[in-house]
Design a protein around this nucleic acid. Structure first.
Lengths: 126, 126
DNA sequence: CGGAATCCCAGAAGATACTG
DNA sequence: CAGTATCTTCTGGGATTCCG
């Protein structure tokens, strides 16, 4: 394998949390472990295929754990592991900025809506 | 236009800084205004077309300014504007995490290299 | 020098059906 | 319920060329 060269730190970060859905998935996992179906419900637009794929990649990057319960029907839970937790503050800030941005868009007269304000409760802490 | 619905704040954030190169571009602008050619040199793998496209989108999102100097040869400078500055802390943390991640990958025995440690000087501040 | 316009394709991503 | 497999669609983005 050829040497992987990053020109700036953030390029390495994007290799982990880049991609269409990874950051969204991680943000949801920030509030605790989730089953596949829960994630699917929290991210309605994602396809089964994409969800699985992105979860596998996050697992291989070493930021989430996959726990399989041997039972019928199957049950699989995903969660941020220790290393993934090191992203937690960033994820929270990304959520917060987005919430502010939605307010900004509304003031601009854009027709937007935000269903879930996950980070509101943490506003004071930052 | 249909109402844009976000399920979680970070989805709105990704609409601004998502895409293959936007975060990288913003990270470079974090250290000051840059000319098109400078950005091209700082991000060697990006194509002319993508650079222009992503810059236009960032401009339309309202986070960067584009300043055209009327001269021959042309000179155009891009910079974070006030609203874009509100992303600066996040961008810095994304860079920092990536720098740590490169160290992590090295310890894992991966063959990686990081050319530019832009955020090192800010480590103590955070 | 900065960038617009064209052509073109690998690979991203959707839909559907199937399995343990 | 979670995941795989297949097939298809489509678009992100590379390469190239031309313009003010």
């Amino acid at each position: 394998m050829v040497k992987k060269i990053y020109n700036i730190g953030v390029e390495a970060t994007l290799e982990v949390i880049g991609g269409k859905w990874k950051t969204v998935i991680l943000c949801h996992l920030r509030t605790g472990a989730k089953r596949t179906g829960e994630l699917k419900r929290l991210i309605p637009e994602i396809s089964q295929k994409m969800l699985t794929k992105q979860l596998r990649e996050l697992e291989q990057s070493g930021v989430i754990d996959r726990k399989v319960y041997n039972q019928i029907p199957p049950k699989v839970e995903y969660s941020l592991n220790n290393y993934g937790e090191s992203l937690s503050l960033i994820l929270n800030k990304l959520c917060l900025w987005g919430e502010h941005h939605v307010d900004y868009l509304e003031k601009e007269g854009k027709d937007v809506a935000l269903l879930r304000r996950e980070s509101s409760k943490m506003k004071e802490r930052d």
